[in-house]
Structures are given as C-alpha cells and as structure tokens.
C-alpha cells in the first residue's frame, strides 16, 4: 500500500512540476486530492490492514497529501508570479517619451529684478513706497530742488499734460511725498520702484517708458559712509560676494554730495572686457546725500536730519545680468523672450 502511495506521490509531483498554467494545477488537485481521487481510494482500503500497520500507513498517506498540497501551493505561487511578471512586461512604457506638460508661466524679467532688489532691501528694514505715475511739477521737480528754470531740467525732457501736470520722469517724487507724510520726523527708510517716462525716441538703448527703483533713508546722523555700506551690501548680494564697489563724485540736483557707483566687472573681475568697456568697472547707480533744500522743502530740519538716496534702472541691471542687447525687448513681449526668464 505504501508503495502505491509512494507511486501516486511521485506521479502527482511530476504532473505538478509539468503543469504550465493554473487550470492544469487545478486538474491535478482535483484528480489526486479530490474525494474520488486515488489517495482517497487508497485510504478506503485501510480497513484491510492490521491495527499495527494502520497508523503507519495513515501517517504516510497524510504525508503524501501534505507534500502534494505544498507542491501545489508553491507551484500556484510560481505561476501567479509568472502571470504578474508577464503582465508587467506588457505594461512597460518608453520612459523617454515626453511627459504631459504642466502650464507654467513666469514673471517679466523686470519684475524679477525689481522683486529681487525689493527683497534685499526688505531684509535691511526698508519698506516699499509707491506713488502716482502722473505727477505734479512740484513733486516731480520743485520739491527735488529743480526749480522751473533749472538747467538740469533739460536733462530730462518730459511728457507734460498741462503746465503743471506731467508723467513722472523719475520715481523720486515718491521720496518727496513720503518725506512730507513724515512731517519732519524720521526715520524714513523706503525703496520705491515704478514706471517713469521721458521724451526719448525708442531705440536699442532708449525707451520713452522705463523702470526705476530708488531708495531713501532719512535719519539723524546718516553719513555718506552709511550709504557706502548699504550699496556694498546690495552690490554683493545682487552681483556676487566678490564684487568691489567704487564711488565717483557726480551731480544730481536733489543730492549733495552726489555720487555714482561702479561695481567691479562681474564678467572679467576687473581685468577689462567688452561688458565693462575695458575699464574693469560697470556703472550701476546714482546716489548721494539728500540735498538740504530737499529736506527743508519736505519739512525736515536739515541741521538735525541727514539722509541718503540712490536710484537705479532695472532695465540696465537686467540687461547686464542677462546679457540683453536691446531695451525694446522688455516692452515687445515676444513670447520667445519672456519664456527665457523661468528661473530668473
């Protein structure tokens, strides 16, 4: 009897081994382990055995059954795994195909530059001040020490609307307005960005509309050396830690002394190249100590308060930073241009 079971076991295990799909296994299961299967048949004949033989054969029969069951299970697992693998194989994709695009625009490069500058000065305790683009002659000129017949008005031919109202030629009127609101009490610490307008013919380097960003600090005991500190911080953050700055005396009607700030060329490091016109220096901004007349007109005691102001052109900075060769690109808004400033 045991021989018979042994043969059945070997026969079943071989069939399991040879089964190629789940259905064949199911057949094996039914035919060997089912109620009408040969093992059951064998066990039915147990009654003919001696009481000594019976438990031995019974145990062996169970052993055979367990072996077949276990072989079945592992074969099922094996086949299932194969099916899954087959499925995954069929599901494989070309991962080099392009992904589904997510629409994402970006800020205008001038906005990017202005926000970068704003953020820098916000961390230095400045606030952002804004004012109207259409201004009175008073705030645009007179309050900034540019009386009606001042020769420097020639420097900025303006779009007048009436004799007294014009498109602002600079963001400085925001300074005048802000100082006035302080009623002679400091500190004032602002940065003011915005659009300005001048009667220039549009060409590669001129635009009748452009941006400015200006800063103003009015406090007791503010010195030119403090301006130097602020500008140096700005230059290093904006153009690189190893930038050097240079102040040159200059002239603006609303500051005295007035300076222009150059930074060491970020392209060549000061050796001289086409960007810095072989001087090693790049002119970045104009600045100075607020003219006493400007302080007085805004209601500050110029004996007690001093201040500094600085102003720069975001277009110029963007042109230098990104190597843009024509100012008109900023206002034409060719999509091929705008798209280049994603990481700006």
């Amino acid at each position: 009897m045991q021989d018979r079971l042994q043969a059945l076991k070997e026969e079943a295990l071989l069939k399991i081994e040879q089964a190629s799909d789940l259905k064949a296994l199911q057949d094996v299961k039914v035919s060997y382990l089912g109620k009408k299967g040969p093992i059951t048949e064998v066990l039915k004949g147990m009654g003919k055995l001696s009481p000594e033989e019976r438990p031995v054969v019974g145990a062996y029969a169970n052993e055979v059954r367990d072996a077949i069951t276990s072989a079945l299970e592992s074969k099922v697992a094996e086949l299932e795994q194969a099916v899954i693998e087959e499925k995954l194989k069929k599901e494989s994709i070309d991962v080099t195909l392009p992904g589904r695009p997510v629409r994402q625009g970006n800020a205008h490069p001038l906005t990017a530059v202005i926000e970068e500058i704003e953020d820098l000065f916000l961390t230095m305790g400045f606030t952002v001040a804004e004012g109207p683009e259409v201004e009175t002659d008073y705030y645009n000129f007179e309050a900034l020490n540019l009386p009606k017949d001042h020769p420097a008005r020639d420097m900025q031919d303006s779009f007048f609307i009436t004799e007294d109202i014009l498109l602002r030629t600079q963001t400085s009127p925001v300074q005048a307005r802000t100082m006035e609101k302080h009623h002679g009490r400091g500190p004032v610490k602002i940065i003011s960005p915005g659009k300005v307008y001048r009667r220039d013919d549009d060409d590669a380097t001129h635009s009748h509309q452009f941006m400015q960003i200006e800063g103003l600090v009015v406090e007791e005991n503010v010195r030119l050396s403090d301006l130097k500190g602020v500008l140096e911080t700005f230059a290093k953050k904006m153009f690189g830690e190893d930038r050097k700055i240079r102040l040159r005396p200059s002239f603006f009607p609303f500051t005295e002394p007035s300076v222009e700030m150059d930074i060491s060329c970020f392209k060549c490091g000061g050796k001289g190249c086409s960007i810095c016109k072989h001087t090693g220096w790049i002119e970045i901004l104009g600045a100075g100590m607020v003219h006493p007349n400007v302080l007085e007109m805004a209601g500050f005691d110029s004996k007690k308060y001093t201040g500094f102001a600085f102003g720069m052109g975001p277009e110029r900075i963007a042109m230098l930073k990104y190597g843009i060769d024509d100012i008109r690109h900023f206002y034409t808004n060719d999509l091929r241009f705008l798209k280049q400033f994603k990481k700006a």
Binding site: N106, F330, L338
Partner: peptide, 10 residues
C-alpha cells in the same frame, strides 16, 4: 501658465 507682460502706458 500665463506669462507676465509689461507694455507702454501711452
């Protein structure tokens, strides 16, 4: 997905 434009006021 929009790009920011800056145009002339006049």
């Amino acid at each position: 997905g929009l790009y920011q434009a800056v145009t002339y006021a006049l």
